[in-house]
Design a protein around this nucleic acid. Sequence first.
DNA 1: CTAAACCCTGACGCGCGCGTCAAGGGCAAG
DNA 2: CTTGCCCTTGACGCGCGCGTCAGGGTTTAG
Lengths: 131, 131
Amino acid sequence: MRIGDAAAAAGTTPRALRFYEERGLLPPPPRSASGQREYGPDDVARIRVVRELLHLGLTVEDVRGFAARLDMFTDGATPRCASPSPSDPPSPASAAVTRRLAALDAEIDRLTRLRARLAGATGRSEAADTA
Amino acid sequence: MRIGDAAAAAGTTPRALRFYEERGLLPPPPRSASGQREYGPDDVARIRVVRELLHLGLTVEDVRGFAARLDMFTDGATPRCASPSPSDPPSPASAAVTRRLAALDAEIDRLTRLRARLAGATGRSEAADTA
DNA sequence: CTAAACCCTGACGCGCGCGTCAAGGGCAAG
DNA sequence: CTTGCCCTTGACGCGCGCGTCAGGGTTTAG
């Protein structure tokens, strides 16, 4: 299948696929004689995984870090970093997840404090909780 | 005083002052014969107020919305939107604050959900709370 | 008088995940 | 053959709050 169909099958756009490829999230697919990209079903599965990871808040940089091992996830539905033994060398994936969690916590923290300061300085006093 | 001194007195940079002026957060100050901006102590106070509001999470757009009434705050230390009667026509300031609070809440909400999904999908389960 | 330090305007850079336009070539249907 | 949609690469746009450089003029201390 060509890029448009692959993109549609994965729920995204051709532009996004070229972007992922350019940034190293997808391997360069084979080309037809005229230079057009040729994707297979496995590629579509991989694209879905990449998109899931991005939607989970990982950055392009994060995902590129362990792009080579992404095929391990293409069979399962949701990526689960099972830890066989608690003292394994941390995989680049779980390291990226840890960093992202820390970054998210820091940002949530910052915004929460900001909200408190803004509400406090203007005389309001509701809470902001949804978790 | 010239722009460098005014900026230093307010704890910021000349570039920021020109930026505030360009975006309508500060009134254009008088110029010397050679075109250099001339600031007074009142201007410094106003700059401080603008910076406080920005640090409180208001956007440039927000602050520009009620820039004309900012002088009301230049004598008090912390801006307090006292509400004389609970059913007043909302000032542009408190409207902006309300919008910012809502935007902050929405963003905190989004990040919190994102964090939960990321933690959940990878098998971790700590909480993220600091408020 | 000269050099240093300041001021001016205008314009690009940043970080992110693509969207969008531009200019050209390919591919299947009528 | 033509029509019309799809593909290719390359480059800019976005939103925010300035930082930073370029290429000048001004002011001030020695």
